[in-house]
Design a protein around this nucleic acid. Structure first.
Lengths: 190, 190
DNA sequence: TCAAAGTTTCAGAAATTCCTGAAACCGCAG
DNA sequence: CTGCGGTTTCAGGAATTTCTGAAACTTTGA
């Protein structure tokens, strides 16, 4: 591996991190390299930079494409494919969230749904099913929220983030306003 | 493996899922089993239920404890340790988020911070550092938000979730109210 | 149509991770 | 102290994943 030290540390870290992250070392390194590179790179340049085999790079790039984490760039007068990462980090975040959901959450959700359809035989199964229902409910809430939020433009999303827990303040205010606006009845909170 | 079919499917699914999830098959299975079990189980019962070796179960339980995903339960007049999962799914969610952050995000954040302190030599390094700064900024925003939100009680958190993207509506309302309340100057949005 | 440049596939070698059985360990009751 | 019920550790074999080099395939320009 022949890279400026700063870049090298970054690349190596991503390689290791990839592990706890569902992608392999090489894939992590390729991504990191493309992420910090000022220009799109072709496969051979990646081979050169990382010191891994050509085929390994090829497979890595395929995987990153499957994750929608790299883009193909055509350089004029060069037949070879060149690769970059999307450069807006928010965009990257969205892609990442979407892909992980697809891989880690959706399959579980569908298994749960299926199991919840079945008739429990024993009391034990009944209990198990109740627990599964709890899990299913939570995951469904989370994904609904996510589907909702992911549609926001970046600017609004950022604003929301910045607000953080203070949103609850906003909610309190709203509740108060609402209950002022119409005569108080029993405990009702919109 | 000798389990009611419903439970078995669930357990097997978690075993497979564990893969894309940073834990190994056995650990996933143990967790799933404890999650749906109506009573705390001891190690031998787990061995029996899953058909894996005693030592494998022992290691699995250790790992789950490291993740704070299982609880030790003492059953009167029984020397053996019994295990369950926390039963509030929201609680589980919190633990999970916390642990994953600790493992997947914090190390990256600290590497980034370190690399950002260094003086870039070449122009290439300078660009790389700028990219790292972007990434660092985003991650920091996200973790700040997370730290903020994780402190909310479950009820509020759920309310927030339910609101979903509608929060932005709330924000718009607020902006309008604020700008009504005081005389309009230049473009200022609190 | 062919050759050259580039890319992908794939079988098996290398590396890593997971799992097991045996042995060591621990705490306690007798 | 000793034996027992119980738990943990660990070396090495099994299984899985990752990586490589060679061969096959594709595209393009002449």
């Amino acid at each position: 591996m022949n890279l400026p030290p700063l870049v090298q540390s970054f690349v190596l870290h991503f390689g290791e991190m990839g592990r706890s992250w569902g992608i392999n070392r090489t894939v992590g390194q390729i991504y990191a390299l493309l992420y910090v590179s000022p220009v799109p790179l072709n496969a051979d340049q990646i081979v050169e930079a990382l010191g891994v085999s050509r085929s390994n790079v090829s497979m890595g790039l395929r995987e990153l494409q499957a994750w929608n984490l790299v883009l193909l760039r055509h350089i004029p007068d060069d037949r070879r494919d060149h690769f970059t990462t999307p450069d807006d980090v928010w965009q990257i975040l969205r892609v990442l969230a979407e892909e992980r959901k697809k891989r880690e959450v959706d399959p579980t959700l569908s298994v749960l749904r299926e199991l919840l359809m079945q008739k429990p035989g024993t009391a034990e199964e009944k209990h198990a099913q109740a627990r599964m229902a709890e899990m299913h409910g939570l995951i469904e809430q989370l994904t609904t929220w996510y589907d909702d939020v992911k549609r926001l433009e970046t600017e609004r999303l950022a604003a929301l983030l910045a607000l953080g827990a203070k949103v609850t303040k906003l909610m309190e205010v709203k509740d108060r306003v609402v209950s002022l606006a119409r005569p108080r009845r029993a405990k009702e909170t919109a």
